[in-house]
């Protein structure tokens, strides 16, 4: 029988001082889920960059906002959802000034280079839902 899907959820303030805590949770979760050291770093980096983008671009560094993080363990992969409640963030959107785009651009590039899927879409009612998927190498076909 297929084991039930498992979720880890975390809601954190949009303050950069919590990024280290988030990375620890993601890293430990990756270990528990059986990801390799390289895959663990990929997950930590991608979630870190996703949240940093939200803090910078969606909330304009306002530390009093909220980011919801869900780690969803499936038999062959981890799906990460980052949900914010700010303005809809569109990759390369007009609301991002050039300076922000340069730094944000590197974050996005890193996320895309270490994850198998990276999808931004508007969340229900407000904000953005960023979904990132990482497959386990041992089970990747």
């Amino acid at each position: 029988m297929r084991p039930p899907d498992e979720y880890i959820t975390l809601s954190l303030p949009s303050n950069p001082k919590y990024l280290g805590l988030l990375r620890e949770v993601v890293g430990r979760s990756a270990e528990i889920f059986g990801f390799s050291e390289e895959e663990k770093l990929s997950l930590m980096l991608a979630v870190n960059e996703g949240c940093a983008n939200i803090i910078e671009h969606c909330y304009g560094r306002d530390p009093s906002q909220k980011i919801d993080v869900t780690l969803h363990l499936l038999p062959d992969r981890m799906e990460v959802e980052l949900r914010d409640y700010g303005e809809y963030f569109e990759e390369g959107g007009r609301s991002i000034c050039d300076e922000e785009l340069r730094e944000g651009g590197l974050g996005l590039r890193l996320m895309k280079s270490v994850m198998d899927e990276v999808v931004f879409r508007p969340a229900e009612r407000e904000g953005t839902l960023l979904t990132m998927v990482k497959y386990r190498a041992a089970r990747r076909s």
Binding site: M44, A52, L106, L110
Partner: peptide, 9 residues
Amino acid sequence: PFMDSSGIA
């Protein structure tokens, strides 16, 4: 142990 894009920048 870890550096992100802001460190790279």
